[in-house]
């Protein structure tokens, strides 16, 4: 009996010490803005090659499924692709003229916020959603490839998220769908500003929330919402998604609604990390 009490006391002591350490760690990482790279690097870096291999296997499976297509299917597909190719060529022609026009207009406006100027790193998505509450994913590039905290991540030409943790050869990206993510946005047509906020409730519908739109603002359905210059984390003029169902709030002062993200998060495999942290190296 005495021994039993003694062991209970001992383990309680251990529990207390560990609790204090863990609470300290939470506070410490909270104070540092969630950056844990220095603690985490050693252990998780070992995991990353394995996770790479797993992602490789997934790609191999996808490829082998492709190879199994029959000759007829391939012929039909070839035909289809050719006609599509022609179509796309003509579209490109059109776009090229548009781009020249755009460049001219941009130089007039002196918009140097285009992210292509910063250089990008392509990365594979090697892990998704360890838990179901916070929507985040892991990519196979880390500090070795020049990735830093709070770099913007884009995919399919739209904003996918923000690097929230960097390891040696991996990083964790919190997507804009995550419930605690907020992005300052602006409508590209009407220049009305808004806040795009992730919302777990809407995750299944594939949309997120738009809030704090000025009551007089005239954002219509399918208006492009891009990142605003006022955002302290996101580079300006990256497409976030398309507005939907913007209605007046009960307070008659602000409007809110929904946003359909430009990125297809269900089938996210490759992403681009923009190698620039906003607010750093301002020259």
């Amino acid at each position: 009996m005495k021994k039993k009490i003694k062991t209970l006391f001992k383990i309680k002591y251990v529990l207390l010490v560990l609790t204090i350490i863990l609470l300290g760690s939470i506070v410490l990482t909270y104070a540092r803005g969630g950056n844990l790279s220095t603690y985490k690097n050693g252990i998780v870096s070992i995991f990353s090659p394995v996770r790479n291999a797993v992602a490789g296997i997934r790609n191999a499976i996808n490829n082998s499924a492709e190879e199994k297509k029959s000759k007829e299917e391939l012929k039909a597909e070839n035909e289809e692709l050719r006609t599509e190719n022609e179509k796309l060529k003509s579209i490109i022609e059109k776009y090229q003229t548009d781009i020249y026009e755009l460049q001219e207009l941009k130089s007039l406006l002196d918009l140097s916020g285009e992210y292509s100027a910063y250089g990008t790193v392509a990365a594979n998505v090697i892990g998704k959603n360890t838990g179901n509450w916070i929507y985040e994913f892991t990519i196979d590039k880390g500090s070795d490839d020049g990735i830093e905290m709070y770099m913007n991540v884009v995919a399919d030409g739209g904003l996918a998220g923000l690097v929230t943790d960097v390891g040696k050869n991996y990083s964790v990206v919190t997507s804009i769908l995550a419930d605690d993510m907020n992005v300052a946005g602006i409508s590209s047509t009407t220049r009305d500003s808004c806040i795009v906020s992730g919302d777990l409730e809407l995750l299944e519908e594939g949309r997120i929330r738009i809030m704090y739109v000025h009551g007089d603002a005239d954002i219509k359905d399918y208006d492009r919402i891009v990142t605003s210059t006022t955002s302290n984390r996101y580079l300006p003029h990256i497409l976030i998604g398309y507005a939907h169902d913007i209605t007046m709030d009960n307070n008659e002062l602000t409007k809110s609604g929904y946003l359909v993200p430009a990125v297809d998060f269900q089938h996210l495999e490759y992403v681009m990390v923009i190698k620039h942290v906003k607010g750093k190296n301002k020259e």
Partner: peptide, 17 residues
């Protein structure tokens, strides 16, 4: 769990412990 997700280190550890 803490290591593979990007949250605060110790958040899950505390609960699982």
């Amino acid at each position: 769990m803490d290591l593979v997700s990007g949250g605060y280190l110790g958040f899950y550890a505390l609960f699982y412990m």
